[in-house]
Design a protein around this nucleic acid. Structure first.
Lengths: 333, 333
DNA sequence: GCGACGAGTGAAAACGTTTCCACTCATCCT
DNA sequence: AGGATGAGTGGAAACGTTTTCACTCGTCGC
């Protein structure tokens, strides 16, 4: 009860100008980068402090035609992969003096489309997005007039800058590791609806072929629990090793092994993607590919800035290598 | 190479008006809620479709004086607690047709202050934030003129709407559970810098007193790894049980038990907060308090809307109960 | 049948900035 | 010494909407 409903005297640049005894234009220049004498600048700053002035960003954006905002659209903010990337993007944006609008598409193409409209209306400076497979394909014909960087998936070839894990290489590397440890019957578990899953499946298949082994790739349909598919694979005569294409699937696979009463790595070797804290803490620790989340986020921002600087530069696709973290779940038999 | 650098003919409401053969005001009304005949509305909509018009939100906001945006400030977006809440907030906002600006304060009061300035400049409709302890205290004197809801911490009493877990009750409940399972020597691990940690410590102390047991609360300083404090506690003559105040500390505690060569629950019972997927998968599963993340996020939005509807309504503090999930780590001895 | 009324529409003002333009001086060059 | 130069400043236009205001009708009540 210190102050009843303040009269909320929203103060604008004119009020500051009056307080400082200068023209509004001068205040604007003092706050921005226009030419101004040091004396006046200080005078204005003092007035700003005295009045408690806060610039109206909407007005600023309207006039200057720059939003100073970037859109970040992810498929699921609760997924640690996206969280890590989001964190990096947010930090990079803060350092560059940009705002971030968070869009969680929830893997729903309708939401995705809706958010894309919003980003256009918002006149965002740039957009960083992880499109679903459906949207990624439609992206080519969408005439997005916003500088866009794709993460996690590359989208239509040659149209968008992108930064992503070298999924094929990473999957291959896991297969190589399993083979080196004496495994030959290796089943792969991949998301049917994601490009990332496809890429990892290809890497898996290529590596299997290279080793002269016959692949057994299982694809998990959209709304199916990974655990179910994993369990089915284990019951089809258990393979020697299981490779899961992301952390959710790895988690499902682990549950399945327990349900099936199999011992890791004795009965079954297990490995997958995403080095989440728990993968180290389960018994045995799980061998995984760690994705450089920070680098992906920062890299996306860097690509975006470069694109803004030179809209005509050739499209770049940055592939980062994952780090293979070997733990007990793939110990040699 | 379908279209070389389009001339980027940014089309405005006037262009649509011309295309539809009406006045700009009419277009605005067709898009908004102004009175307009069905015939003209359809005519305008057709023109909008034909021209591919996207409203300029900056202009709209400037004129209408509503940002349609809410700010969400969290201490660390990589923390699953905040991620879960953020997800709920984002979804609620989407349904209400609002944008979300994501601010990750990184537990840095300076960043927090900077972001608060930004929110004011942005003229956000409302703000949902999890302040650090430092900022929470300063909040009283800050003259935030934005409707604000606090989450995770309550802040200065009676000033802000808030929604949070009933931390004391939850901690008590864990103690009760441990006692019921025959434990008497129970050590608590709490974050020194967080209000949440304090509240949980109080609940712990109260419950211990109620059972006539002597408490042993350890506080983890700001930059110290929880594992280190946990290890120290274990070496001071191992207690019968360890209670950790959040998931990071629980993780540290688990690592410490392994390093100390203690078996759970044989040598030491273990429990804590946050029902993350991995707490079920480690051997044995960990007993935890599950926080209703979705409810916290949705609840914060609801409080915010209510506050916007009636700025004079009394301040509300919503306390939600956690759900105790009992697993093997606290099995009776 | 006539005045009041209300719904629907267009013209123009307004929102709070930045930026263009014109202007004033002090300074520099020859 | 005199004109050109350029930095610093103020006035006013401009950004793209929404909203106010005035106006035109068709309709209703009497």
């Amino acid at each position: 009860m210190k102050s009843i409903t303040s009269p909320s005297p929203v103060i604008g640049i004119k009020d500051v100008a009056r307080a400082a005894g200068v023209a509004p234009a001068t205040v604007s220049r003092a706050l921005g980068k226009g030419p101004i004498s040091d004396a006046l600048r200080e005078q204005v700053m003092e007035a700003v402090r005295a009045t408690g002035y806060r610039p109206n960003l909407a007005a600023r954006r309207l006039r200057s035609q720059e939003s100073g905002t970037i859109g970040l659209m992810v498929a699921d903010i609760a997924n640690p992969f996206f969280t890590g990337v989001a964190r990096a993007v947010e930090h990079a944006a803060f350092e560059a003096g940009l705002r971030v609008i968070l869009c969680d598409s929830d893997r729903d193409p309708a939401r995705e489309a809706s958010y894309l409209q919003l980003m256009q209306a918002e006149r965002v400076t740039g957009l960083i997005m992880a499109p679903t497979r459906a949207t990624a394909q439609r992206l080519a014909g969408m005439a997005l007039d916003v500088p866009t960087v794709l993460i996690d998936r590359a989208g239509p070839p040659g149209l968008f800058d992108s930064v992503l894990l070298d999924n094929a290489e990473a999957a291959s590397s896991l297969v190589d590791h399993l083979v080196a440890n004496g495994h030959t019957r290796i089943t792969g578990l991949f998301g049917e609806t994601s490009d990332t899953g496809r890429a990892r499946a290809e890497g898996y298949a290529a590596a299997m072929a290279r080793h002269g082994l016959s692949p057994d790739a299982r694809f998990i349909p959209a709304a199916t629990p990974p655990e179910q598919v994993a369990l089915a694979a284990l019951r089809d005569g258990p393979p020697g090793a299981l490779l899961a294409a992301n952390s959710l699937q790895l988690l499902g696979a682990l549950r399945a092994t327990r349900e099936a009463g199999l011992r890791v790595p004795g009965d079954l070797a297990l490995c997958g993607f995403d080095n989440e804290p728990w993968t180290e803490l389960v018994e045995p620790g799980l061998t995984v590919i760690e994705q450089p989340l920070e680098e992906i986020g920062r890299g996306a921002m860097r690509l975006l800035f470069d694109r803004l600087r030179d809209p005509e530069a050739p499209v770049r696709k940055v592939m980062l290598s994952g780090r293979r973290v070997v733990r007990g779940s793939t110990a040699a038999r």
